[in-house]
Write a protein that binds this DNA or RNA. Sequence first.
DNA 1: CTGAAAGCGCTTACAG
DNA 2: CTGAAAGCGCTTACAG
Lengths: 333, 333
Amino acid sequence: MDNKKITIDDIARDLGISKTTVSRAISGKGRIGTATREKVLSYISEKNYRPSAIAKGLAQSKTYNLAFAMPSDSKFIDLPFFQRCMWGICAEGSKADYDVLLCIVDENDISGLKRLADNHKVDGVILGRTYENGLAEKYLFSEGIPFVTIGTSAAADAVQIDNDHVEACRELTGRLLDEGLRRLAVIGGRTEHIVNKSRLTGFTKAHTERGLKTDNAIMYMGSSDKDSVEKALAKVLEQNVDCIVCTDDSVCNTVINRLLSLKLEIPKDMRVASFYNSTTLENFRPTITSLEFDAVGAGMLSCSTLLNLIDGVNVSKKTLLGYNILMRDSTRK
Amino acid sequence: MDNKKITIDDIARDLGISKTTVSRAISGKGRIGTATREKVLSYISEKNYRPSAIAKGLAQSKTYNLAFAMPSDSKFIDLPFFQRCMWGICAEGSKADYDVLLCIVDENDISGLKRLADNHKVDGVILGRTYENGLAEKYLFSEGIPFVTIGTSAAADAVQIDNDHVEACRELTGRLLDEGLRRLAVIGGRTEHIVNKSRLTGFTKAHTERGLKTDNAIMYMGSSDKDSVEKALAKVLEQNVDCIVCTDDSVCNTVINRLLSLKLEIPKDMRVASFYNSTTLENFRPTITSLEFDAVGAGMLSCSTLLNLIDGVNVSKKTLLGYNILMRDSTRK
DNA sequence: CTGAAAGCGCTTACAG
DNA sequence: CTGAAAGCGCTTACAG
């Protein structure tokens, strides 16, 4: 339609008032006559005028942008968790007229995040995953850029939103033990990912509380890809094991399919549980015992927290989110 | 470290030159003495100065931002395809110093996209999925905003990047038919998603070419959720069918698990193929016959194409990308 | 209640 | 090769 972008100057001229007044009518800040405001408002809605967020930002030294840092392995692995977080962040951010800029980060490579931050393109950052080495956190602190982590951070003073993985894993493991499953194997991802460390902590805790010991011979962390998971599974199957606990749905998926191809029936021949749910597991028969978290909610909360942080509102350093335990057929004794 | 953000003015003052000169040293545009340039460059690298992309953008009437519109069902369903596209877009965009802003869109709700565009926050848009009604395309055309679609668009004059779904599905279906599988059922998603329409077209084409007829009694499109897929499957199983073709991995996943829980073996009792691959299907045993596309590549190409479009470079209206056919155990006769 | 003016941090003709 | 000045499209003290 109208190709020319109309500016605040055009409006001021057309209406015979100053752009100060136009600005006030739009922002609602400062005193302004009702009649004048109405006039401006009806004019802009008629002309379909929308102020430039960029210009507004420059004038206010803000960007109205957030960065969401996604782990780079989303290139290869399906990680619906982060997609859902993103969803929550976008939804929550847009309420405050904030938009979200994407970047890909890695345990050892935060160049994507740096670009965004160094170019002054964001007011704050949400870290989608936390690592043992806390590279991103160090950088953001040194630059004085507000940020929130989804997941427990290695940087103690970082503002963190986390699903309570320790508690959740402790409780699920406890339930399995209490149902009489004694020899629990665990196959899981790299403990450089803090979330995996927490899961392991919960797993161990449940044993300790019951005066039981975990057995390192049936615990295989650091299995990030399919091959290493299958190798770990082979080792596990050589031993006396009641149930295999997988730290996430991806590992669990590999384990299940491998068991099936070995003609092992679940739960008759082997029991399986997962510390993270997914639609894939959800479709599976028998149904898989697992933990359920609210990724969208975590995204929303991380966003609203970050916005508070940016605005200088006081926020709590660490918030733990709830979980559901889904006891299902795959762990039936 | 240094909390105060340093600006081009500070540099000019410190170095006793004009900011015009500083700007030229940084951008590389315009004539400038080697000595002067060196002086500026070494100063900014020492002080770790990075110009504000926002201010630069305002001055040039550009944003150096792209929008990537993701389908809203990513809230519920795992859609690794879009995550991978995103990956490609980010990687490609950053080469040209472009960043990507996210928005969630729907078949009937493009308000998220509108916010971004109306606020003048992006130079162009990449549409992650195309719909029959072409709502987003109409809006973008009317606003004169450059855009590229991933997937065939209902708007004929839109610039489109697509995996060649018609050809891919035609070829895979043909192979199944040529191997002697005659009664092919199809269970698939809503044809309001153009990609599903294309898949169906390829499926039908393969039959026609061989003088065969498809049978509507074993074709169930419009099965978007698990329930409807399972219902469709029940109907299919009542009939004489050699193989079930699923339009995507999510449908296929549901079908497989349902078959297993009915104690039907693949491929002995029923054969299965999928028109879209995924890591979930990849893990499955028996291995699943399917199509394989390069989502990261599609993302990269859509981005470079959009950047050309923005720069006024000539681009081809429609680009079709290749595919791989993975003939595997799940369709063995 | 309203406006003139300076400013946000850059770029870019234009002139020298 | 270099600089003064205007401009990108807004906001915000300050004054009236």
